[in-house]
Nucleic acid binder design. Structure first.
Lengths: 144, 144
DNA sequence: GTTGAAAAAACAGAGGA
DNA sequence: TCCTCTGTTTTTTCAAC
């Protein structure tokens, strides 16, 4: 369980977090370690699933998905809700949560109008409460 | 505003979303287009900021941050809250939201005990309501 | 952990349909 | 915008230390 990452691992991860397309030799120059050693560490981090992948990050505004909203919903049709969210392109995140509501949905829509349409189609599954984001201050940040 | 992405752009983006470290030539083989053309499209997508970057994805469980919680908070000390969240390593996301509460915070802690400590340090800024995730069903998904 | 060297692969740029 | 062609750079995989 304790994978005892050292400072070098953390540095490599930081570089890859900042730019996943950095080459091994670029990283090796930055941290003053030989290229084969950097490569070996990366492979180990991937094998241990500490690094689970590499992904392109998109500007959602440019994809007409610039409006972020969180919807809390209380439903008894759990499987139906999950299926619905998996199908819906607006849904980026879905969590089963504790408390009065049992799911939290994060949706990205082109506009508030489009959000309203989404809410309509969701309403048949149970009562919900929406929180529109007026500013995304921090997103998907992992400090190492 | 209309960047009229075509199917080839979308395919390139899908491959990079799935694995940001794919080489240009790997992508070019997958979509049966020459390497220079794929590269040129990637550069344009980056220049237009449709692709805003590439990032390593970490398994938070392995980093002792496996517990996901959403905290709604109502505060009048906005700047203080933002500063606090920016400093806190547990905070991965922060949104200014509409409604009764004015901020939504996503936190990743090692355990529920650690969450309690975080809540304690937050309590001085205003009343809050937490929703612990029992299952992260979808995360950070962008369908193209 | 390092260096070094050879083979394979990927990349960058020019020129043209 | 896309292609092919070519030279250069980078990566990979060894080995030996």
């Amino acid at each position: 369980m304790d994978h005892h990452l050292d400072d070098i691992d953390r540095k490599i991860m930081q570089f890859l977090q900042h730019n996943a397309r950095m080459t091994v030799s670029q990283i090796s120059k930055e941290i003053a370690m030989s290229q084969p050693s950097v490569k070996e560490r990366m492979i180990k981090l991937e094998e241990k699933s500490i690094i689970s992948g590499y992904s392109a990050v998109f500007q959602l505004r440019e994809l007409n998905r610039g409006t972020t909203t969180f919807i809390l919903i209380k439903t008894e049709q759990c499987q139906k809700l999950v299926d619905f969210c998996e199908e819906a392109k607006e849904v980026t995140d879905l969590y089963r949560i504790s408390g009065e509501y049992n799911y939290l949905i994060k949706v990205q829509t082109a506009s508030i109008e489009e959000l309203a349409e989404f809410q309509d189609s969701l309403s048949k599954l149970g009562p919900s409460k929406s929180h529109i984001s007026m500013k995304n201050i921090l997103e998907n940040r992992v400090l190492l």
